[in-house]
Design a protein around this nucleic acid. Structure first.
Lengths: 348, 348
DNA sequence: ATGAAAGCGCTAACAA
DNA sequence: TTGTTAGCGCTTTCAT
């Protein structure tokens, strides 16, 4: 008797001496029922502290009214912003959100996705983990024809709809800006080359250099992950090589922080001795010194667009498949990446 | 036929010419079933791409195998860390996590809590929104005797178990440290006085001042919320008063960032012209200048302890009610709050 | 406008 | 070791 058995439709029904069906309909504002009955029913329901059993309701109606969301990480400003906007958008359309976090682990990814499927969610919003994922789970989902939208970190060779940031263009814009400020020796702490964001951001970087006739030095492209620790490692590798660049372009904001942190330890001052730019910012970036010059990702927008696209799929049926939205970034000029000349002269 | 009807136990059963029950048991490794049968069943299940219907399973077993988590915010380093550790801990014990975000809105809080209840979650992990919540929903939960643990932001006059940070002690330690460094004019951007963390952090602040014979100036205690914007507002109020302190102690890390940001705009240098300390840090704090001297909250630990306590309640029954865990903070010495003397002399 | 019957997919007794 | 019988609480036909 730990859990006191919940109030059910039947309880209200016997109390009111009508059938369960009437209660069920009344509670859902079914047009069948007279408004007087509805009122009485709702009153008693409230009085008894009734609330519907989600399982029973969904089992019998075969709808969940929920969308499943799978993200690789949550303690990351970019993702948590996206998630907030997913919640907001879904709620606005009366959908529940079931969130699962893979912790960048592809095993958990499969596990959670199965749970989400077993919950018969009406649709799926997915951002994949950084590790080469076990594709089979995604193929499974493909076969199930459940409405699905991938966002930010997507899988290229699958026929799902996607909502992504314009990574190539963003990186290109940012690195171009750095070149215009007078930087030439620009290294890149890149993302894994099996991830779309890793590839694209690197492409933008390379294109910016090439277009301005600056050679690409493979030693200055260091591949790694997307977290702080990867920034530290990358910086240390650069440091050991004895050939520090003037500027480092990092694949994410946390990686940039890792670099700054490691540089601080190595007594190298940023941006005085070594400058930095990165892909993606954070709310906090503007508040601190140095605020990093970066291209800001449209996190809120990404979450909203992805959710709306999914909702559209769910509601309009699966016909309109494979859409690809690409959202633009915005250049933020912070304390880093100031014109090179200023530093060499005493101009202030 | 958009959603192809899912594979059920019955499908496997007819395929194998045995009963549904056998399948059900085999899939759950029930000792009743011979291992050969189990193998065959599992094989066919995999072949058919079967996975159980979560609703049906839970409806009939009357267990959800999930815990419901309600937080006020997610795009906040402290909460996202807690949430990650809740997920980790729950997963380790084979529990699902259903996360809901109230966005600091007490109406949504009630809404989500009802959803969670209707999902018949086995337990609840709650951190309340900053606004005076509509208590009735919590009283409702109290009556239902569903295992519940509040964490971080708790409700005082209810008989729930809680896991919190030692706010009084943390604030006391931090402010004491500032005084020892030579600061005397210390203002406090405090949290709302109807929240436990608002009250307790202020108590710690006041006690530290009093014990050292420093008078408390009400004008230097400004009450507000926990976000960046509240820091900006607080700073501006202080600025307008024409009586800036030497040091500001903020109730949260985001509030401190708001102050720094507003100070930057007002051309006041931190920590040179105005110094700052805050309750709670972030992974990024160490990477930036100025890194803020603060007391770090045991976020991971909080999430883990709260989850374990809840799990214990769920598993051992509700007998062991009302436990209160209070976790200690840790002082982090950053760039701010350096000894006052150093600044006045030219000592470096 | 209301209700009776059937069943969603599964699990928990109990029998065989 | 396997199967039968009953539901879980709700919604959906289809009668009334």
């Amino acid at each position: 008797m730990s859990k006191p058995s919940q109030i059910t439709l039947a309880d209200i029904a016997t109390r009111l001496k009508v059938s369960k069906v009437t209660i069920s309909k009344a509670l859902r504002d079914h047009p069948d029922i007279s408004s007087t009955t509805k009122e009485r029913v709702k009153e008693v329901a409230k009085e008894l502290g009734y609330f519907p059993n989600y399982f029973a309701r969904n089992l019998s109606s075969k709808k969940s009214g929920a969308i499943g969301v799978l993200v690789p990480k949550i303690a990351h400003h970019f993702f948590s912003s996206i998630i907030e906007s997913i919640y907001d958008t879904a709620l606005k359309h009366n959908y529940e959100v079931i969130l699962m976090v893979s912790q960048e682990d592809s095993r958990r990814e499969a596990l959670h996705l199965h749970t989400l499927l077993s919950m018969r969610v009406d649709g799926l919003l997915i951002s994949v983990s950084k590790m080469t994922p076990d594709m089979s789970i995604f193929r499974e989902i493909e076969k199930l024809h459940i409405p699905t939208v991938f966002f930010d970190r997507v899988l290229n060779d699958l026929s799902f709809s996607t909502v992504t940031t314009d990574d190539v263009d963003g990186a290109y814009t940012l690195v171009s800006h750095a070149i215009e400020q007078g930087f030439r020796k620009i290294a890149h702490l890149a993302g894994y080359s099996h991830t779309n964001i890793g590839i694209h951001r690197r492409q933008g970087y390379e294109r910016a250099l090439q277009e301005r006739g600056i050679g690409i030095d493979k030693n200055w492209i260091i591949e790694g992950g997307f977290a702080e620790i990867d920034g530290k490692k990358g910086f240390q590798k650069l440091l050991r090589s004895g050939n520090l660049p003037e500027m480092i372009f990092t694949v994410t904001y946390p990686v940039a922080l890792g670099v700054i942190s490691a540089a601080k330890e190595a007594n190298i001052k940023i941006p005085e001795q070594l400058d930095i730019i990165c892909f993606g910012g954070s709310d906090y970036n503007k508040c601190v010194y140095p605020s990093i010059t970066c291209v800001e990702q449209p996190a809120k927008d990404l979450g909203e667009k992805a959710t709306l696209l999914l909702l559209q799929k769910i509601i309009n049926g699966e016909g309109n498949s494979e859409k690809h939205l690409v959202l633009p970034t915005q250049l933020f000029r912070g304390d880093t990446c100031q014109p090179r000349l200023k530093k060499q002269n005493s101009e202030r």
